[in-house]
Amino acid sequence: MKKVHGVCPIAPAVFHDDGSLDLEGYRRCCDAMLKGGAQALALFGIAGEYYKFDREEEEALIPVTVEVCHANDAPAVISNTRHSTESATKWAKRIEASGADCMMLLPPFFLKPGAAEITRHVEAVCDAVSIPVMFQYAPEQTGVTIPPEALANLAARHQNLNYFKIECKPPGAYISRLTELLKGKQAEIFVGNAGFQMIEGFRRGAQGVMPGPSMFDVYRKIWDALEAGNDAEAFRVHAKLNALLNHIRQNVEMIIHFEKRILQRRGLIESARCRSPQFRSDAVYDRLFDELYADLEPEFIR
């Protein structure tokens, strides 16, 4: 299995103007992202509109993702978002059979199951496969809070629970505590939440960032600067990125809307179509977006 490290964007949902899945457009976009600096891709993340696909589309997207990642010598991460433990364990085996290098696991959150049930769910899914598992901790989106001690206990019992995507607010102390608890285990932590706190996360021991898809090369520029010890460059680029993110990420559907527009503007997808229900922009949103985008645009690869 290929190790997941560094900049691992969430793969976008690519549609035609009529809302149908653009599978070949998706393939081309993912290939361009990987060639342009992304070090892995994750399918079915929240920023990738996983909740708007039907089963047939999911089945079509998985092999394309694995194929394009491996063609670029990059790991493929496939997220398991099923809410029932029975479905999630079946889907986990499907993900493993696809050749994916890692399975990300979003715990069930509809009707807010208790801690014991979530633990049983995670245990069952980890036991169902041998590939590495990444636990996604996203309490803002799911409404489910889990202490770092619980994640560390799960990792101690499951050898393949090797990654954690942390996107609570604030994430810093949580990352530090989880890093301390995981000491001695082969486990790595990724920063989520659009990478707002990726510099702090790096300083606290995170080994990667999992942002949205459209500015993968900007995140890579920041990550490379951090690894090189060039904090001044990392702060310079990150400040410009955060200015744009602060505007376009006022909720999840809003950032998905603008991520699609950035991908289209950069020539990586043909249509910026989002499936409904979706965010609807207006002239004021758009004008500020254009101004902040223009300031960040020189940081993109050519």
Rank of each mutant, 00 (worst) to 15 (best):
M1A: 13
H5A: 10
V14Y: 09
V14Q: 02
V14N: 07
D22G: 05
C30T: 04
A32P: 04
M33H: 07
M33G: 04
G37Q: 04
A47G: 15
R55K: 13
I62W: 04
I62F: 06
E67A: 08
A74N: 02
P75W: 03
V77L: 13
V77Q: 01
N80L: 07
I95G: 06
A97I: 08
L105E: 01
K112H: 14
G114T: 07
A115P: 13
A115E: 14
A115Y: 07
I118E: 02
V125P: 00
V129W: 07
I131K: 06
M134I: 02
P139Y: 00
Q141G: 08
N162E: 11
F164S: 00
E167Y: 05
C168G: 14
K169C: 12
G172P: 06
G172Q: 13
R177M: 10
K185G: 06
K185T: 09
Q186L: 11
I189T: 01
I189Y: 04
A194H: 12
G205F: 03
G205S: 09
A206Y: 03
Q207V: 09
M215C: 15
V218N: 03
R220K: 14
A232E: 14
F235V: 14
L241K: 07
L241H: 13
A243D: 15
A243I: 08
L245D: 06
N251V: 10
M254L: 04
I255C: 11
K260L: 06
R261L: 14
R261G: 02
I269P: 00
I269L: 05
E270F: 09
S271F: 10
Q278M: 12
F279Q: 10
S281P: 06
D286I: 13
R287H: 15
E291H: 10
L296S: 08
E297H: 05
I301C: 12
